[in-house]
Design a binder for these strands. Structure first.
Lengths: 229, 229
DNA sequence: TCAAAAGTGTTCTGGATACACCCATGT
DNA sequence: ACATGGGTGTATCCAGAACACTTTTGA
């Protein structure tokens, strides 16, 4: 199969920065490259966009193929198109970032045929291509977005404690938060539903579980809401 | 000249949403298409990315070629890649938005060989391709960004009055602002330099002129600043 | 009874908002 | 003199920040 064009075209790829939360650590999912260039180096999952495939679909497909993940929160990040970012030829990459509930997926990704592993975001090896830069931009975006959009919940299980939520925000923002103020503000949004359950199997007082009220958020979002942590 | 590839590739373009301020109105620069598809319809300036050209460079080149603009503030917006957004073939477009000091460029753009004109952003004709959507996203972005980055100054001449600045913010945010509070806040940033000049040729008390202190802003930006209007 | 984390209230401060009048200038 | 926009100060309110102790539970 071969096609020809009047003018040369850049190749188009998608790359995904997949974030997960492991206890109190923010992690990113990387895969080890099996082919040149950068064979053996860790990289972001990604690949070529097909000609009959929307960008978001390409990102989801690559994510599924390379890491087994599906049904995750996914949002476009930025498009990287510097000359020379791929040593073979001109490649423009539309980067996405994804947020996954890590509990479900931890093992799967690590035992896939393709070698994949979670790394603490501040302790990654030198990545292939310009993926270090992409990761940095994704972290910046996450840090900014989490302050005015309740996307953090995408990283938590459906039922969570306020302490888990606080640790999440602390991990993303990279600074400690005051417990009382945090709880006041989190509950003050009115977007947390108090459940009649507590966490299990802990060696201390069990914390109450909450869930995120997505419906309510979506309703608020319609008519000029405002969410902040 | 013809090239061939193993797999078909989407074509890659850039499109630019160029904003300018005309008195108190926010305007966008459009060009009339001379070719099919959408011949005769208004569209955003843009065109194909060359294979040896960075994305930003492509955006600047197209802007210069189609509108005569150069040296403007330009930032990547979002990449649009839905299927069918171009009726001919698969085209992915990296959209940019630009901010220009309209005074300098008003005539030039309108008298270029190619027909180009400024339209009030809330009174544009139906645009070619998905350019209505791109424009909407750009407006959203501008509205958000102007609140925490002093990019508004890119739309004003180097010397401006506080009333001009206020009208600019009112135009972008689409709501009136209190004069006293606005001045307090604007001056409170410490980023405005009071000049020993006043505006000329007005039929009332002449307002003092200010300039934006870009150096100071860049210094602040380095070590965790914070700018808000 | 001890360890470990859950849970809770108040004070203070600073920025956001709301609001109305006098001033300078050109016609 | 008058019309036009320039320029200024204060009171109120609310959200954010700072801060420490008691409670519950399992080991």
């Amino acid at each position: 199969m071969s096609v020809s064009y009047e003018h040369p075209r850049p190749a188009l790829t998608v790359d995904c920065v997949v974030f997960g939360l492991d206890e109190a650590d923010l992690k990113v999912l990387l895969i080890r490259r099996e082919l040149d260039p950068f064979r053996g180096r860790w990289a972001l999952p990604g690949g070529f966009v097909r000609v009959e495939e929307a960008l978001d679909d390409a990102a989801r497909r690559e994510l599924a193929e390379e890491t087994g993940l599906s049904g995750v929160f996914l949002e476009q990040l930025y498009t990287f198109g510097a000359l020379g970012r791929d040593p073979r030829e001109r490649v423009v990459s539309v980067a996405y970032y994804a947020l996954v509930k890590l509990g479900d997926h931890r093992v799967k990704a690590a035992t896939d045929a393709r070698e994949a592993a979670w790394f603490a975001v501040d302790d990654t090896p030198a990545l292939a291509f310009d993926h270090d830069e992409i990761l940095a931009v994704a972290l910046e975006r996450l840090k900014g977005k989490v302050r005015y959009r309740p996307i953090g919940f995408e990283l938590l299980p459906p039922k969570f404690t306020l302490s888990q939520l606080q640790r999440l925000y602390e991990a993303i923002l990279e600074r400690p938060l005051d417990k009382r103020n945090f709880r006041k503000k989190a509950l003050g949004t009115g977007l947390l539903v108090e459940l009649d359950e507590v966490e299990q199997d802990v060696a201390h007082r069990a914390a109450r579980l909450y869930r995120f009220d997505r419906r309510k958020y979506e309703r608020l979002e319609k008519d000029g809401f405002s969410f902040e942590i």
